[in-house]
Design a protein around this nucleic acid. Structure first.
Lengths: 357, 357
DNA sequence: ATGAAAGCGCTAACAG
DNA sequence: CTGTTAGCGCTTTCAT
């Protein structure tokens, strides 16, 4: 028999490998591998014996070795916008995008023995391609999850397509790859309808960064609601923002300075809504009596704002879980029944909306 | 020349490997490996040639292959408390612990070509050992980062010690492994001193879960401040909590029901402080005039609370970055100069503290 | 239905 | 200083 200890003992205790399991169960390596991978052609009895050995030894296959031997890595790579994410973390803006992604993505991956790994890349950087290629070469993920605005960036989607790496875009309307999103237009329409039903007639809209496809969809939904309610379009009621607090403040100032100022505002992000609250209050307006606000995203902070904000809740965890599931399915050779999925949003009514005075 | 395409072409384009680089630079595999690993005994000229080839081909070594061949995985595993983390995510409680960890840990890892991977384990589960062993077998991390309360759990620290895997505990006082924390006692003392200097004489304290070593340290700091100010200890002013909102509400009710109720409270977490605010306000107290509150953690929500909370800010990102650096250093064979590091906290004064009426 | 052999991309130990 | 050899733990052929 081969002894374990060589002349110089290894630094760390030798880990349990497939060999040990095979020896314990009295079968070949290959049979153990088949059992692990739920492969065909294994008698139930043998399968049982192998599983017992696995349990007894506490064996867990090494991801690195599986990746080396086989064609899959059991890794999913999630790509987030670098600047926005880091800024959010450093400023403590209370955004929980990343947390919700982890909640949905990590847990779903874990169910399937997968891992989700997280990378920050800068969409604007000329070296996006290099950055992504590097991560791909380093990890060889079986699939990639793209978060806004990466899913709308053709440099990225083309790269992934060329490399034949399955990818899913979250919060994206369609485009190449799987798309998992919510109906942003319908959500904006719902938000606007909520205000209309309260009796508002002058409703302002603060749009998001045009770099995000969903910004256009939300604007469209807002317009649609007004149109259906029989109002002529008033372009002065639409102010351009870019999701940030600062842009929201500027946009709100613009809207409130209008001769016939709006009695309500739909803002495309929580940060912009919070800015709207602050600007309105420091202009002496009382919320929601003088101004109603509907927000987008429903991150934790909006519950603690005064007044707490009515908001459209984006199902980020569910979207990410869905994306992970599709990608893992693709890695298993399953062909997705559809190339896009739209998950339901929710309008959470809180204290920032009321009938106009 | 060896042709690339076999009879059945591979599903994905062949990746650039060390072989290609070696061929391009006209050297052996080993020389390339030496350059990558910054090894000794490579002439500058050759090094240059290899680096040029690497750049030209966009070569990035595969982590899986490096782990297989060598003794390191370039992976750090961060272990967080499962229930607490998931509850926080699902309830949207606005805690950004995980985000701050990622900020500090991921970015530091990236600087060194490392990856930080994230795992949730349940400290209370009898199968903690199995869960951790599984993750270790799957990933073979070069080091493990323990967050509270895992760093205080001997089952976990013993396991890691036995396996000779370097680990660092964050927010932990000492114990085995590296410890990276802040001076919780001093922080609580600072918080209490702040209230004393405003003129408060009856100061309540809401402690954290006793499962966390830092809970005791904070309580001790509070006591120390009062002692040094010449006040006799009044045990009725200390209420037990467990960091959660609910426990904070109960503790506050208890404190406010006292015959000689405190004019100020130090609470050991943001959630408990928020609960204190709510309970106090619904009891008709005005903040900060009737009751001052100092919080612990300074997560994003406390800025949006009304009033915004004065709080001790915990340098989670810095602590995690430090932990990552120590572990990566250990993987490189460096012997740490010290086994623990204490990072500075900060008292952020906001609107929840004022002189008593 | 099972086993044996080859090789993934890299590093470690040893030669030169 | 540089190259050669062996092998990490698994999956993939291919044979039986």
């Amino acid at each position: 028999m081969t002894e374990d200890g060589g002349p110089a003992s290894p630094r760390r205790p030798r880990a349990v490998t497939i060999k040990h399991v095979a020896a314990e169960a009295g079968v070949s390596l290959q049979t153990v591998s088949r059992v692990i991978n739920d492969g065909p052609n294994v008698r139930a009895e043998i399968k049982q014996r192998v599983n017992d050995a696995i349990d007894k030894l506490g064996y867990v296959p090494s991801l690195a070795a599986r990746r080396m031997g086989g064609t899959r890595s059991y890794l999913l790579l999630a790509l987030n916008d670098r600047d926005r994410t880091i800024d959010g973390w450093q400023s403590g803006d209370g955004t929980d995008w990343v947390d919700q992604m982890l909640l949905g993505g990590m847990l779903k991956c874990a169910e399937h023995g997968y891992r989700m790994i997280f990378e920050l890349v800068d969409t604007h950087d000329a070296r996006v391609e290099r950055a992504i290629n590097g991560a791909l070469a380093q990890l060889h993920p079986d699939g990639v999850i793209l978060t806004p605005p990466h899913g709308d960036n053709p440099v990225i989607t083309d790269l992934l397509t060329a490399k034949k790496i399955p990818f899913a875009s979250i919060g994206s309307a369609g485009g190449p790859g799987f798309a998992v999103g919510m109906d942003d237009a319908e959500a904006a329409k719902t938000a606007t309808d909520h205000l209309l039903s309260l009796g508002h007639r002058r409703i302002g809209f603060i749009s998001g960064s045009p770099e995000y496809a969903l910004s256009g969809a939300r604007l469209e939904g807002y317009r649609c609601a007004l149109r259906e309610a029989g109002f002529a379009e008033d372009r002065t009621l639409v102010a351009q923002g870019d999701f940030t607090f600062g842009s929201g403040a500027a946009a709100t100032q613009h809207l409130l300075a209008l001769a016939d100022r709006p009695t309500a505002i739909v803002a495309s992000s929580d940060q912009m809504s919070l800015a709207a609250v602050q600007v309105a209050q420091s202009s002496g307006l009382r919320l929601p009596d003088d101004l109603s606000i509907v927000s987008f995203d429903d991150t934790p902070i909006v519950k603690f704002s005064t007044p707490a904000l009515t908001a459209i809740r984006q199902p980020i965890a569910a979207m990410t879980a869905h994306a992970a599931e599709m990608l893992i399915g693709a890695a298993n050779g399953e062909v997705a029944a559809q190339t896009s999925e739209t998950l339901p949003f929710e309008l959470i009514v809180r204290a920032s909306t009321a009938a106009p005075r």
